[in-house]
Design a binder for these strands. Structure first.
Lengths: 209, 209
DNA sequence: TGGTGTGAAGTGGTTCACAGCA
DNA sequence: TGCTGTGAACCACTTCACACCA
């Protein structure tokens, strides 16, 4: 299989495999079969093998996959290299929590600054990064060459801020606002819509036991 | 088209349509075409019409859809009725922010209680709901007939807590822990993996302009 | 023998294209 | 004429099933 561009779905799974593999590695496990890793990752074995096909021959027939090698292979494929700077816009409830969230750092990101309409109002929140007023946004992005933004502003301001971001040449937006953002094709958006997730879940759960 | 069970993907879109429709309604717009609503929702017109096919004839050919009727039709289809009680487990950074997040309420949910290993440690956080120790969890779920849980505990405790939840007969888990939960088929899980979303986004964004 | 690698078949979801109706 | 409703074509992703090899 030639190295074609991977689908978003496969990519999610690769990231999950990687997490599971790291756990195995920490526990001193050296080899894992597709069925074991698949179960831990919540997928079918065949799917996992297909996904790993992107790297060519890594497993050993009759044995399984060497955990450490597979970790490196996935990492190389993903091109994880330097720490990636990120900014966050909208340091309200959720925004502040995300600034403190350590999961981003583990993934190789660093939230280097936050922006808010009222930076003084979050002064007491004891965040470890500077919070700037919105006026500084465009300059900051261009000077620091920021490509990724975490957007946590209220829905009614989301599109307006997005327009600014697009003009600044941003590359990707992780959007927590309950709004469908209109962006040009050159900009990627991942939506994390908390209310929607709960409503969606709720539909598949019967109310009575 | 008969009322067969809808796919999760269509369901997400229905919820998005509903939000867009409400905005239109607030602005006094009475009729909308599939192309206009589709654009606002970030989908193709044909897809939108297919999705609306679940309700049978609602649009008027040559004209479009009556906004208000469509809102009701979707709401009826989703079966949105009473306020649904939800509990949250793990009132740390993220958990506390979610308790204060008002998007859930808008969607017809009420977070009626939180649980934490150290409830006293969140006393100063000024949450508007009671925070109980984990010991009370099972009793609370059964007495209040809770079906939905928002899970915000650290990854290493997520499966353990989940096992308890499953035993209590919970119906659905909105999982914010970076962990693949193992649950029986009778339980639904929606994963919201923040770090994964950012990593995934990052892959599709080139580092240099 | 056991588990990978992979073409082929299957499945589900999207888009097209056009008939049908206000 | 304009826009909905929908079968049919299309496409992407998943799963099967088995050849192949340590």
């Amino acid at each position: 299989m030639e190295k074609t561009s991977i689908s978003s779905k496969s990519l999610y799974r690769l990231l999950i495999y990687q997490r599971c593999l790291r756990k195995l590695f920490e526990n001193g496990i050296e080899t894992v079969s597709s069925s074991a890793l698949a179960k831990a990752s919540g997928v079918k074995p065949a799917q996992l093998r297909k996904d790993l096909g992107y790297f060519g021959q890594i497993g050993t027939r009759g044995l399984g996959y060497p955990v450490e090698d597979l970790i490196y292979a996935i990492r190389d494929f993903l091109g994880r290299t330097t720490l990636k700077p990120v900014i966050l816009i909208g340091a309200g409830n959720l925004g502040s929590a995300l600034i403190r969230y350590d999961g981003f750092n583990k993934g190789g990101f660093e939230v280097i600054g936050a922006f808010d309409l009222f930076p003084q109002s979050v002064a007491g929140k004891d965040l470890n990064i500077p919070v700037y007023p919105m006026d500084n946004l465009a300059t900051f992005i261009q000077q620091k060459k920021i490509r990724l933004v975490i957007l946590c502003v209220p829905g009614e301001h989301a599109q307006e801020v997005t327009n600014t971001l697009v003009m600044c040449g941003i590359g990707g937006i992780l959007n927590f606002s309950p709004t469908v953002l209109q962006v040009p094709d050159s900009v990627s958006v991942n939506n994390v819509d908390l209310a929607l997730e709960l409503e969606n879940l709720s539909y598949f759960v019967t109310q009575d036991k």
